[in-house]
């Protein structure tokens, strides 16, 4: 199978993730969109690594996973704090800060 297909797939996944972030209202779903973007990036790194015959692409994917995990911890903590205070995780309801 052609390796380019994986690159195309990762671009599609990245776009789906980005669209999710921009279009969906539920904070958890938005957050999942961000995670999808990061994982699409991992796929791209691994594929490019394979194409170039270079291991660092795969190593980078591990770094990204660790960073993504740290991001989940911080993100979910903030989302849960918001949910407990307002009983809602809609990004539209969070609008106290408007001039």
């Amino acid at each position: 199978m052609e390796l380019t297909h994986y690159v195309v797939l990762s671009c599609i996944l990245f776009s789906v993730g980005a669209a999710t972030v921009l279009l969906r209202r539920n904070a958890i779903i938005v957050f999942m969109g961000v995670e999808l973007m990061l994982n699409a990036t991992n796929l791209a790194f691994v594929t490019f690594g394979r194409m170039h015959g270079d291991l660092s692409g795969q190593v980078i994917a591990f770094f990204v996973m660790v960073v993504a995990a740290a991001e989940v911890v911080v993100g979910l903590a903030i989302i849960i704090a918001i949910f407990r205070a307002r009983r809602s995780v809609s990004v539209d309801d969070v609008d106290l800060l408007k001039s």
Binding site: G17, A18, V21, F31, V34, L38, M51, A85, V94
Partner: peptide, 29 residues
């Protein structure tokens, strides 16, 4: 207000770092 600030900063910041990272992937490619 403060939680809201953290929330907005987080979502937009995570989005921006994902874009940054995909850019790195393309440059690596």
């Amino acid at each position: 207000l403060s939680q809201e600030a953290g929330f907005k900063y987080f979502l937009l910041g995570a989005f921006a770092s994902a874009i940054f990272l995909f850019g790195v992937a393309l440059m690596y490619g």
